[in-house]
Amino acid sequence: MYQQAKRLSKLALCPVLMLLSLLSTGAWATEGAPQRWQLNMTPGVTEVGAKIYDLHMFVFWVCVVVGILVFGVMFYSVFAYRKERHQEPATFHENTRVEIAWTIVPFLLLLVMAVPATKTLIEIYDTDDADLDVLVTGYQWKWKYEYINPNGDNVSFFSNLLTDKAEIANSEAKGSNYLIEVDEPLVLPVDKKVRFLVTANDVLHAWWVPALAVKRDAVPGFINEAWTKATETGVYRGQCAELCGRDHGFMPIVVNVVEEAEYQEWMAGKQAEAAELKALMSKEFTMDELVARGKTVYNRSCAACHGPAGEGGVGPAIAGSAIATGPTKGHLDVVVNGVPGSAMQAFGGQLNEVDLAAVVTYQRNGFGNNMGDMLQPIDIYKFKKGQ
């Protein structure tokens, strides 16, 4: 009896501690965005998120009641049968009624919790009848979003950390959205069911936006499904929830939920950008145009590893490197295909042909390299086709 009571007391201790934490921190707040002091989860801005929150609180309070009852019996027994009162403790063992009671009661409690939990789980994994499909691909350390349209007119772009390097290096004051701001947020229409197809290009990642009640592992070679249906417009932030490398903390997620009309306007703008990029494929750029565009691409995609001035860092220096001053084909091979077994990623699928031509031209003519040669988008296209 003593050992069984001791075991029950340990099980009951956790919900009591949780309750004390809840009351002491004010973690019952229901704002859409979590606060620094907050321990509890939030309902978010989706119906399924609210159901998850309600289920969580229901199970929590069941545990609290169980904890109070178990500790109540324990404290009463300690007080009523203490040694000073000369009470004789019971000496029975393996009481059949007690055994039946503490078998049936937990079983019934589990049923009470299992039924709503099962209903909620079924709804969480029901990705049918989506109004919009978005393919989410994790890269070190950025996200790629591709809107899959039935007419085949897909729109895709990368979302990169926007926080200034000076803030990260503590040479400037940190902004209010430090490490949680991006250059291209994901835009979704309100009150529409959106299905996410989540995968990864290199290592394990996890796409997590608490307010949208979505958290799915991004696994190379696999596609995991999730969905959301935001009921309120706004900006909702998340992060990669898998330790994916040294810059794991530098790949935030920002989702803008907007009205349908604003979403259609944004989508039309993205489709126009894609059409403009397609037209640029046939354009002959000047050296100045390529260098100017290449500098922007370099600062966004290369400077973190190779240094703002090409001096090197995590990766080798670009200034005076054998790659940037060597044969053009070898330089292209490194940029397009990456270097296996190193931190150098393959940018052939991350940058379009125009940006690849521009950044390679910039690397070959900047940082004192002054090779004098340049590449056009058609050269990148031919290189990829000829591999």
Rank of each mutant, 00 (worst) to 15 (best):
M1D: 10
M1T: 14
Q3R: 08
Q4R: 08
P15Q: 05
V16C: 07
L17H: 03
L19M: 14
L22G: 01
A27M: 08
A29M: 06
G32S: 07
G32C: 00
A33C: 02
A33E: 13
R36N: 11
N40H: 06
T46P: 04
G49L: 10
V59H: 03
W61E: 06
V62K: 02
V64N: 11
G72Q: 01
V73P: 00
A80L: 00
Y81C: 09
K83L: 07
R85F: 10
H86F: 11
P89E: 08
F92D: 11
E94R: 10
E99T: 14
I100N: 06
W102K: 14
P106N: 06
F107D: 04
E123K: 03
I124M: 14
D126W: 05
T127A: 06
K144T: 00
Y145W: 05
N149K: 14
P150M: 02
G152S: 02
F157Y: 15
S159Y: 01
N160D: 10
L161Q: 11
L161F: 05
I168D: 02
A169D: 15
N170V: 07
E172C: 01
G175W: 05
I180E: 15
V187F: 07
K192Q: 15
R195F: 02
F196A: 07
D202Q: 15
D202I: 07
D202R: 10
H205R: 05
A211G: 05
L212N: 09
V214S: 07
V214W: 02
K215G: 08
V219K: 13
V219H: 07
A226H: 05
K229L: 08
A230Y: 10
Y236L: 06
G238E: 09
G238N: 05
Q239A: 12
C240Y: 03
C244N: 14
G249W: 05
I253C: 04
V255R: 10
E260T: 15
A272M: 07
E273Y: 08
L277F: 09
A279Y: 03
A279V: 14
E284K: 15
E284L: 02
M287E: 09
M287T: 09
A292R: 00
V297M: 04
Y298W: 00
A309T: 03
G315R: 01
A319P: 01
G330A: 06
H331Q: 02
A343F: 06
L351C: 02
L356G: 02
T361H: 10
F367H: 12
P377N: 05
D379T: 10
K385W: 00
